[in-house]
């Protein structure tokens, strides 16, 4: 309990100790640099400006989802419904848009602006249900969002009934598949969402509460912080980001259909965790998530540039995720050495 003498502190942390304290942030960055160097050396087509654009475009949808997920994981909760909510929102917007005559869906066309608003309302409604279940009923987020994953899939199934829709409102179309000069709009949107996420987490009271709730929920409660409201809000932010990603994703893919986002659940969680945001909450942030996104993006893209069994790629991604988890938990243990003496 009481190790060293009262009121006596270790002298200033040594450089090594400080580096170890930063392991959470340094390890992902080092991984990124190493991967870029590796693929750059192995393939002349990797380290080009055009390919950088590819990488950014490939991670954009994941990035938008990962921003919301960062809020949730910082609160030491999880949201497994992100891909499903994205899918449902994308399909809902398509459902409310005039489709080509060949599309055999009994849809309800609305003006584009209304369809977009309905999309946001839809994902927020799903987020609100999740938030209610987690904070008011007390269902663990892991289970609650698993149920929401099914519900989202169910909504998708009912709306498209095995068919494929193609049209979305023009604004969504532009942001999802258009370009501003050489830069795809989706990259810009992702960058803006990342920036907003970062600003909210770093400079607002809500952001501070997110960190404090994740750092020590009981202490936050004893400080008079409305823990339920903060956790609920984080889950709503996650649903909102997923919804946005879902709408733009339909334009990006060029179609709206069941299960088209399925890979994004794992990708978004991987990005947040590989970036070094603590699985236990309270540590990390959007900066970490950006690094995590780039590590995953470079890995996926780079493996395409080197000659490799494409089936091996899946295994490699799994191993990288495992390694990141090891570093994550290890970093947590290092930090916890400074635990309270109570």
């Amino acid at each position: 309990m009481t190790a060293p003498a009262d009121a006596v502190l270790p002298p200033r942390e040594s450089l090594l100790e400080r580096l170890r304290g930063q392991l959470r942030n340094l390890a992902p960055l080092a991984t990124l640099v190493a991967l870029v160097a590796l693929f750059g050396a192995l393939s002349p087509s990797f380290a080009t400006l055009a390919n950088l654009g590819n990488v950014l475009q490939q991670v954009s949808i994941t990035a938008i989802i990962a921003v919301g997920l960062t809020f949730v994981i910082l609160c030491s909760e999880i949201d497994l419904s992100v891909a499903s909510v994205a899918n449902a929102t994308g399909i809902l917007v398509a459902f409310l848009t005039v489709q080509d005559a060949s599309v055999n869906i009994a849809n309800l066309p609305l003006p584009g602006a209304l369809a977009i608003l309905a999309g946001f309302a839809g994902c927020l409604a799903l987020g609100a249900i999740t938030a209610f279940g987690v904070t008011q009923i007390g269902i663990p987020s892991f289970i609650m969002t698993l149920a929401m994953l099914q519900i989202g899939n169910g909504i998708c199934a009912l709306l498209v009934r095995g068919q494929i829709a193609y049209s979305v409102p023009p604004l969504v179309n532009t942001l999802g598949s258009g370009s501003l000069g050489p830069v795809p709009w989706i990259v810009i949107v992702a960058a803006v969402v990342l920036l907003i996420g970062h600003l909210v987490l770093t400079y607002t009271r809500f952001g501070r509460y997110v960190y404090m709730v994740g750092g020590n929920r009981e202490a936050a409660e004893h400080s008079g912080v409305g823990v339920a409201a903060i956790v609920g809000a984080a889950l709503m932010v996650s649903a909102l980001c997923s919804g946005l990603a879902g709408m733009l994703g339909v334009a990006y893919f060029g179609s709206a259909q069941q299960n088209q986002f399925d890979n994004y659940l794992l990708d978004a969680i991987s990005a947040v965790v590989v970036g070094g945001t603590s699985l236990f909450g309270g540590q990390g942030g959007i900066g970490n998530t950006i690094v995590g996104l780039l590590v995953l993006g470079v890995l996926n893209n780079g493996l395409d540039h080197v000659r490799m069994d494409s089936f091996l790629k899946i295994l490699i991604r799994g191993l990288v995720l495992l390694l990141a988890l090891v570093v994550n938990v290890y970093a947590q243990r290092l930090r916890t050495r400074q635990r309270l003496t109570a």
């Binding site: 501070r208 750092g215 020590n216 009981e218 202490a219 309270g282 916890t336 400074q338």
Partner: peptide, 19 residues
């Protein structure tokens, strides 16, 4: 319990300003 009222990894000033 001090564990129940402090954020061990957060700096002192954030532990004070939280309220």
């Amino acid at each position: 319990s001090r564990r129940a009222m402090l954020f061990a990894l957060e700096p002192v000033y954030r532990n004070i300003s939280i309220a």
